[in-house]
Design a protein around this nucleic acid. Structure first.
Lengths: 189, 189
DNA sequence: GAATATTTTGACTGAGTAGTCAGTCAGGAG
DNA sequence: CTCCTGACTGACTACTCAGTCAAAATATTC
């Protein structure tokens, strides 16, 4: 925090890793390449991170933190639960569309053997999770297991993000609106 | 088909590759390990497949073929379009739940750099794709881009399959029914 | 500004990998 | 019986890569 030089290099390494991992995958990206892209020597990576695996976990934590911040609701907004939920879903979708590298990295992390050690889901511990529970309690959405409700809202959103990140599909305002609205139609009572 | 000795080893290699890839990923699995698991010499893999990459493509084609067969509808079934669609979705979900290795392999393939060369989607060229188009023409589902309709049905299904394959979530009959029904609620007019 | 602590460097190591190739051997043809 | 074919073998090669380390550079303290 105080000394900037050191934090800068660490940051540059995480940034470079994110870009390369998204483009080439974890195993397709050598640590030397990450260092090169970050503009540091190959050994520096291992000063800041114990191993390549630790770098990946650390990067995951960092990205996940950014998503949580992104979804954080403005205080004092007293609109309806339904509105708040739809708004959060829209924000999540927008974030994933605007940050395809982050999305690709996270999907990769989720399917990698790492994720079995360090538990993960975009879904957990975020506002949408809690909004769904509340909405179910208040009987404005179906009385279904949380797993089902989450699949019904996160599934379509990640499907669109996948189309965009991996195939360059253009997802305009209209498509986003239609999808989010239909997610609601799927879960509402 | 006729000569068994040769086909057997090729088959054993594909089978071993599927298991190991699902458990350890493409890069986490050495060709020697695949050969060992298949009970053949390391060189045999390269007799049947030009390279590791070709083995992966071949395995993908094989798995995809099996899914297509699985989803093939019985002829002469003259139930409604809605029934046929829901039935196909249920069959897809069941297949992915019953074959987590196939699911993991396919997801991995989709996110790997390979898929950019050899185009892929579970979605394309299958019955569900065509049923959705028909249903939209007949105005029994929403007038939305196909991408949206597909996201709304494949998204939740793959989300559940993910929960099951990667986290061991138990997806019972009730959960399947609820999810498929809700997918319909999401797309119906 | 000397002494000490932190950070950075890049050549190096050793483990492991994809793919090769000279040779084995069962079985079919003549 | 002899020759041939081609699936199969496994030791081998050329190479890559994560991680190390001794020394240099830079920052901090007294």
């Amino acid at each position: 925090m105080s000394s900037c030089k050191s934090e800068d290099k660490r940051c540059a390494l995480l940034q470079a890793a994110l870009e390369l991992f998204a483009a080439q995958g974890f195993d397709g990206t050598a640590t030397t390449q990450i260092a090169k892209q970050a503009g540091v020597a190959s050994g520096t990576l291992f000063f800041h991170f114990k191993s390549k695996e630790e770098l990946i976990h650390e990067l995951y934590r960092e990205v996940r933190g950014r998503i949580e911040v992104e979804l954080r609701e403005p205080v004092g907004a007293s609109i309806s639960l339904r509105e708040r939920l739809l708004h959060s879903l829209e924000k999540l979708l927008l974030f994933l569309l605007n940050n395809p590298r982050e999305f690709k990295f996270i999907e990769q992390y989720y399917f990698s053997p790492f994720s079995e050690r360090e538990v993960f889901r975009i879904e957990e511990n975020n506002i949408i999770h809690h909004l769904l529970i509340q909405a179910r309690e208040q009987q404005i959405v179906k009385e279904a297991p949380l797993m089902v409700l989450e699949a019904l809202v996160f599934g379509p959103i990640t499907a669109l993000a996948k189309d965009h990140a991996n195939r360059g599909a253009v997802i305009d305002e209209e498509i986003r609106r239609l999808t989010i609205q239909s997610c609601w139609d799927g879960i509402k009572r």
